[in-house]
Design a protein around this nucleic acid. Structure first.
Lengths: 210, 210
DNA sequence: GCTGAAGCGGAAACTGATTCCGTATTAACC
DNA sequence: GGTTAATACGGAATCAGTTTCCGCTTCAGC
C-alpha cells in the first residue's frame, strides 16, 4: 500500500536506533480535519461528476483552497485510491467468501459480475483506468495489485477443476473487464453482457493455447 | 457520409429549381491546397503522436495557422474521420471479400481480428473512441455506421448456420472489440487474445439468452 | 486590373491543472 | 498564557492547450 496521504497513526514513531533525534511533532489537527473534509468532498464529487472532476470543485466543497488538495494528494490517483479503498477491500472479501462457499466456476463468474458492477458504477473510473492520463497512472496498478491474489486463486481453482482454460491470467481478465466497463449507450447492462460473453469464452477449453 | 470538410467536387452545382441564384464561385485553390497539406500533416502527426495531438502540432507541420485547422475541421473527429476514411473503406471491402470466400464463422473471426489490428494500431484511436471527450463524439457513430452493415451480414450468416449465438449485435461486438483495443502493457497481442476469447464466447450457444 | 467574397494567421480569451510563497495556525516548550 | 519554529493554508500566478475572432491577404470572376 503506497497511499501518499493516508492518516498514519496519531503517535509519532519513536526515533530509530543510535542517532539522537528530536521526536517529530504530532500531525497538526487542522491538517487532519482538512484531509477528512477532502475525502468526504471527493467521495461526493466523484459520485456526481466523475473521478476526473476539476480539483477546484472538490476544494470548494471541502471548503479549502486548491493548494490543499494538491498538498495532500499530489496526483489525482492518490485521491481516487483513498476514496475507493473501502470498496476495494469489500470486493476482495467478497471474492474470498465466494471462493469458500461456491463451486469454483460459479465463484469466479459471480465475482467477475460483481467486479463489473463495481467498476461500471463509479463515474469515470473505467475510463480513467485506461485513459493513459499520467494523473491516473497509479490506479490500474493499485487495483491489479490488490485484486490479483483473489482472482488468481479463483482462476487456479476453476482451471484445476477443468472448468476453464488455463491460458488466461488474472491480469488479462481484470483489465478486459475494466475495459468493457467503459460507459456508453446501454449502461452497465451492456458491460455485464459482454463480460458474460468473455466468461463463456473462458469456458471454451477447445481453443486453448498450449 | 457526413464529412464536414471533404473535398466536394470542383464544379459548383448549378442552382436549384425556380429561384434565380448567382452561381456560387469555385472553391479557392489555396483553400484546397491547405486542406491537402492539413490532411497529410494530420496523417503523419496522428501516426507519431496519436489522434489527440495538439492542434498546433498539425498546423505547424502543414505550414498553416491553427485558425485554418479549425476552419476546415471544426471538431477533432472530423479530421480523424477524414484521415481514416480510406482505411475504413478497405476494412469494409475486406469484410465483403471474406464473406464471399470464407466459411461463415471463419469470415467473421478473421474480420474481427483484422479490425482489431486496425483499431489497436492507430495511436490513441481506441482511447479516443471511448474517451467521452466531445471532441471525438462523432467518431464512434461514424465507425458504427460505416461498419455495421458488413458485420450484420457476417453475423447473420454465422448465426443462421448455427455457428454462433444470435443474441449479440454487430454494435455490441464492434464496441467491445474497440474497447479491448485500448493500449496498455502487452500491446496489440493482448487485444487479439481478448478478442479471440470474446469470439469463443460467441460460439458458445449454450448460454444464449432466449 | 479591379473588386468583394473567401480564406488566412495568429493574437486573445478561456479552461483547467499545477506551482509557489507570504501569511496564518499549531504543537511543543517554557 | 507566551514564545517560537515547524507546518499547513489559500489563492494568485503560471502554464498548456483549445477555441474564437477579426484585420489583412489572396483569389475567382468579371
Amino acid at each position: 500500500m503506497t497511499l501518499a496521504a493516508s492518516g498514519e497513526t496519531d503517535e509519532p514513531s519513536s526515533a530509530g536506533a543510535g542517532v539522537v533525534e528530536r521526536a517529530p511533532r504530532r500531525k497538526r489537527s487542522d491538517a487532519k480535519r482538512n484531509l477528512d473534509s477532502l475525502l468526504d468532498a471527493a467521495k461526493e464529487v466523484f459520485a456526481s461528476s466523475g473521478v476526473d472532476a476539476p480539483a477546484k470543485e472538490i476544494a470548494d466543497l471541502a471548503g479549502v483552497g486548491v493548494g490543499t488538495v494538491y498538498r495532500h494528494f499530489p496526483v489525482r490517483s492518490d485521491l481516487v485510491i483513498a476514496v475507493l479503498q473501502h470498496e476495494v477491500d469489500a470486493c476482495i472479501e467478497e471474492g474470498e467468501t465466494l471462493s469458500s462457499t461456491e463451486e469454483s466456476l460459479a465463484a469466479l463468474t459471480k465475482w467477475l459480475h460483481r467486479y463489473t458492477d463495481f467498476v461500471a458504477t463509479k463515474r469515470g473510473l473505467a475510463a480513467a483506468l485506461h485513459s493513459g492520463d499520467p494523473a491516473f497512472e497509479g490506479l490500474p496498478s493499485y487495483l491489479l495489485q490488490r485484486l490479483d491474489p483473489v482472482v488468481v486463486m479463483m482462476l487456479d481453482r476453476a482451471a484445476a477443476a477443468g472448468e476453464i482454460r488455463s491460458d488466461v491470467t488474472a491480469n488479462d481478465l481484470l483489465r478486459a473487464v475494466a475495459q468493457l466497463c467503459i460507459p456508453g449507450p446501454g449502461g452497465p447492462a451492456y458491460s455485464q453482457r459482454m463480460v458474460a460473453l468473455l466468461v463463456d469464452g473462458l469456458r471454451n477449453v477447445s481453443t486453448e493455447a498450449r
